[in-house]
Amino acid sequence: MSKPLLKVEGLKKYFPIRKGLIGKTVGHVKAIDDISFYVNEGETLGIVGESGCGKSTTGRTIMRLLEPTEGVVEFEGRDLNSMSANEVRKVRRDIQMVFQDPYASLNPRHTIGKILEEPLIVHGVSNAKERREKVVEFLKIVGLSEYHAKRYPHQFSGGQRQRIGIARALMTNPKLIIADEPVSALDVSIQAQVLNLMQDLQKEFNLTYIFIAHDLGVVRHISNRVAVMYLGKIVEITESEELYANPLHPYTQALLSAVPVPDPNYKKEQIIIEGDMPSPANPPSGCAFHTRCPFKMDVCTKITPVLAEESTGHSVACHLYTQEGNDDIDRKKQLEGSV
């Protein structure tokens, strides 16, 4: 049995909203608000959701690029909070990140060789020859060549730059890679190359991925399990096959039906939800999706549904599946009757 490599418990990240000259805090953007999940060794957990729902903040908080407001992040069974600075540095080698825009994250004034060498220097590989060999080795692993080491980022295409971003993440032999929209900026033909590369590397190095994206097709392709986020919360999480075959949360259902399918013969039932995503600075009361939900009940505006297991390995946060919701039963019956 695989065991959790990473465990996240009750993680929160609130950004203060400041106003006025002295920057008085007038409120908070609850970018992530009490999320919990785990990732098993060797698997890929996909995180999907629309712009601003907190996907990147989740990744960055796990990486400690952002200080969490609250919550526990455990890596290999150990709480990152309780570690010494030295231990945290060691763990840093094991968790690496790949970003959406490889161009913005590569220093334009450095050669690729230098960019790839840097993580080795940071982590104390002092032998220059060893470092150079490793750079060449990883350039080849991601499908580039030795001579590319002398070139600068602007001399590469988008797909090649993303390969460099991946090579950089691999330099320290990490166990977990958090990939934040790694193919979103790429053309489809190039996207397929990078996705295939990531899958090959996962097998070769027994990597664990957290794969963040807004494209449900891409996420399904690469993930074993998928978490769906809405307004700073995980609203549903389960095996990827199960999620696509049997989505439980009304938001997941709407999201799946909104994705255009490249097949003109495929007639799907479209659930078009009205309205926009509310602001995370001022989320609706109760269930944050109630302003757009076609199944909204009275209880939904009052009580926030918590993520709970509905069937084995399939959790959902929605009153259609809670006791409070069932108490609202007349209304629910009425809705079911109308579908």
């Binding site: 996207q191 397929a192 097709g217």
Partner: peptide
């Protein structure tokens, strides 16, 4: 090369 949401391919054509 487009990943199809309806059924999972082992490997994408690229």
């Amino acid at each position: 090369s487009v990943p199809d949401m309806r059924d999972k391919k082992e490997r994408l054509y690229s």
